[in-house]
Amino acid sequence: MTLRMSLLGLSAALMLTALAMVFFYAPTDIVLGVSQRIFYVHVPLALVGFLAFAVVAVCSIGYLWKGSERMDNVAYAAAEIGVLFTSLMLITGMLWAKPAWGVWWSWSPQLTTSLILWFLYAAYLMLRAYAPPGETAARYAAVLGIIGFIDVPIVYMAARWWRDLHPNKVLGPLAEESALEPPMQLTFLVSILAFTALFAWLMTERTELRRQEIQVERMRYIYGEA
């Protein structure tokens, strides 16, 4: 309980700091203008989303190895939160691409990889929903969690070579990362910390909820009513 409360407090404090820095401390980008500030949500969302999928992979291996239900609960929570972060990353990315590049979508290697990742872990959640409940769903999901994560670098390679063959017609200034000024770097760092703390808090809450769900399922099974 105390861990969850302190994580909530930490992420709230960091988030407020990050928000204040994004709007009142970081300078406006000379080339990209105000829309560059989306960077401070978009990139942390992407990084933490990727971290979430790494957690899924590690816990999947742990689950198949040790068979501990707790590992599986953590993997489940990480997959769901990872899909949430990746969805928001794709949305904020589109909202940044339009002002920066003049298009909503560009098949850059990062975007292509993220989109496929989103589909992969959406499929992971579907598999958990449709598989026979209990231990079978956990085993299937763990196998997919491992296969999916190993697939990521291969997808990235394919997306990069593919992009070389089919260059996008991008209008306006290309966001080939202009070097960040020190205040921007600091703001970016605080944003990453804030999103990581938020992720940690959501993880504890979602894992706890998952534990409750399983407990209720078992009790219902024993006492048919209610």
Binding site: G33, V34, S35, S87, P99
Partner: peptide, 28 residues
Amino acid sequence: ALGAEGEEFLPFLFAAFAITWVAFFAYA
């Protein structure tokens, strides 16, 4: 806080932050 340049893109910035925060609050 933002300075005058690129004002026409302000709605994009606003939307990006609003959607992210609404989603987080809804999920929590």
